[in-house]
Design a protein around this nucleic acid. Sequence first.
DNA 1: TTGAGCACTTGCAAAATGCAAGCAATCAGG
DNA 2: CCTGATTGCTTGCATTTTGCAAGTGCTCAA
Lengths: 137, 137
Amino acid sequence: MTQSRSKYDSGCPVAYALDIFGDRWSLLVIRDMAVKGARTYGELLAGWEGISTNILAQRLKQLEQAGIVTKEKDPDSGRSFVYELTQKGRDLAPVLIEIALWSGRYNTAPDAMTGFLDKISADRPGTEARMRAGERP
Amino acid sequence: MTQSRSKYDSGCPVAYALDIFGDRWSLLVIRDMAVKGARTYGELLAGWEGISTNILAQRLKQLEQAGIVTKEKDPDSGRSFVYELTQKGRDLAPVLIEIALWSGRYNTAPDAMTGFLDKISADRPGTEARMRAGERP
DNA sequence: TTGAGCACTTGCAAAATGCAAGCAATCAGG
DNA sequence: CCTGATTGCTTGCATTTTGCAAGTGCTCAA
């Protein structure tokens, strides 16, 4: 579980985090698990933005190594695996919420809202709790 | 100033944000401006992580286009420019703070703290205000 | 006028990404 | 039991992005 220090890691906490999810896809995978309750490879692959399969596989490995997600065999299906957010992963909920709030203030595109923002403004603590639980919408 | 929709933008607020700063460097540039009060190209280039000059130039252009930073001639020096965070950029302070708090919980490296976390836990509203002001430490 | 500083740009190699196809292990239906 | 569909990937290859080094143009102080 001991992570080797990346060449970018300066000791700054922001850099530490970006080392783990500072790329195009990682946070979207975490969002799909936290906000949409995605649990399987297939569900993640079918996400809104269309991640390609090799990238998804690679990101899941990295996130597992970083202790953000766990991977277990589905007890009900021999060909499926179940991915779960760890505590470390669930604790990213406030980060996702702040990002979404910021976008809500500045994204003026007409179809920019997908319900997530409405949920946050209606009940932020409840939304955060539901994200941590990985509840399906 | 109207931004064309990226091929990744699904309408999700998280995706909108990642479209702007979902890469290795953009948030570090914003951090250098918000936390360290960096204002010039040279100061940003000398950041903790060692961004390369071509990437910095490209990111500054993108951030300017996205309305996160402004670029103006330094009134006191004909060869310098001054970059400033806009309101939109300063409003990323809560995102940076949540990221730093998360890292603080999970980065166990001995030299992981650079003072920023201590400031947040000593006085979060004050730290956020100082970030928005772009005050130098 | 000259040399140093600042803010970049350019060229090129290396790495990451995206797309399509392939593949192994289940499992459900006939 | 055989067969085809489903699931969770891996592989190959073209394209894009990144990283490093070197170079350029403008400014200013001596």
